[in-house]
Design a protein around this nucleic acid. Sequence first.
DNA 1: GCTCGCATTGAACAGGTGTTTAATCTTTGA
DNA 2: TCAAAGATTAAACACCTGTTCAATGCGAGC
Lengths: 217, 217
Amino acid sequence: MRSTASSTTERIRDAAVARFGRDGFSAGLRTIAADAGVTAGLVVHHFGSKDGLRQACDAYVLGVIRSEKMRATTSGSAAGMLAQLAEIEQFGPLALYAVRSMQAGGELATAFIEHMVSDAEEYLAAGVEAGTIRPSRDPAGRARYLTFQGMGSLMLWISMHPEMVSVDDFRSALREISDQITLPALELFTEGLFVDRTMLDSYLMYVPDPPGGPAVP
Amino acid sequence: MRSTASSTTERIRDAAVARFGRDGFSAGLRTIAADAGVTAGLVVHHFGSKDGLRQACDAYVLGVIRSEKMRATTSGSAAGMLAQLAEIEQFGPLALYAVRSMQAGGELATAFIEHMVSDAEEYLAAGVEAGTIRPSRDPAGRARYLTFQGMGSLMLWISMHPEMVSVDDFRSALREISDQITLPALELFTEGLFVDRTMLDSYLMYVPDPPGGPAVP
DNA sequence: GCTCGCATTGAACAGGTGTTTAATCTTTGA
DNA sequence: TCAAAGATTAAACACCTGTTCAATGCGAGC
């Protein structure tokens, strides 16, 4: 049972990702070691310290996210959001770890969010070019805004439903979320919220130079 | 210097709210006791345990929030959001504590969010009646959606900028947030995101009975 | 066969945690 | 005035944490 499928280092790393995702970063080294079938001492022997272990987990998760696999089409469109949720299902433990990382802040969280922001900007630009999405006066700001709203609300929902944090229930939880938000999101995205344009127009008069310049004549 | 302004119990409770808000709920009892100028033993003498202290903090913060003072006009409109941020400034430590509570989940977080949701629903209904906000096919769902998006993105932003967590910088942080999101929010709220109605209409054909019944003829 | 190097363990260590306990100090009530 | 009750403290306790250390097991190279 030595090098069956994965090396011991990888097994510890995977156990740490899963345990950190389930219990947060306050999980103990002995718990993680027991999950991997080893001893706490061996964990620090391989990773130097608990912080080293967490950095290894960060690098691993970020690498998977940055690889070809996980498209982070966070928000952009409701269809894109649903597609994103469906894709998150496949990466249950990694997604849980990413959420915990966002809760704790830090380097991985920033990189993860920035990755999602640029992905959203890309998708929004494609939608604008295809004529399905309205152009914005500040495309980068809009992508950032939509990403923060979508990921933030997901984070808040998970924080308030910790019993759904087990990977098995993660799929049904995501389906429940999408059921709840699809109609309000579609309404907002197609019809907006305000009846007239007075608030936007008065803001544009007040701040006449939005970043990126006007995109609507 | 015995009963100058507040009793010792209240002083400990206030110190706990501030310290929990700054460092999260992993803050130690001795730290809180030192902040209040007492000993750790006295804290548990008055509150029974650390969990009792936290419950007292929860009850206190929730009581202030539920009192006449803090209107939780979370989202609804961009103007309402700005007003909310301005009001949050006045309750710096309490707002920080509420954010930490949302990150950790639990009873207070649920009650706090539900309070904000019902407040948002009320404000949205008033806007609809006044003719400034479009009616929704699911007013409750929309209020919940907007509240989760707004508070969740605020939570995410704070998680990613822990250096802004000191109460003094909280005001400038909130101002920076509102500067970044005002234009995208106004755009989305007045013009929407989609060019046509196909996605919404096809969803309504698919799910012809949204909760609350149609509000638009 | 033997040694060298690495993986791995179990125990110990130093420090932090929440909590308990006994003793002191302070206030209050009759 | 005296005693009872509460407030407060410092020390101790048991437990958990990350980390270190010496010892052991095991496989590869000469």
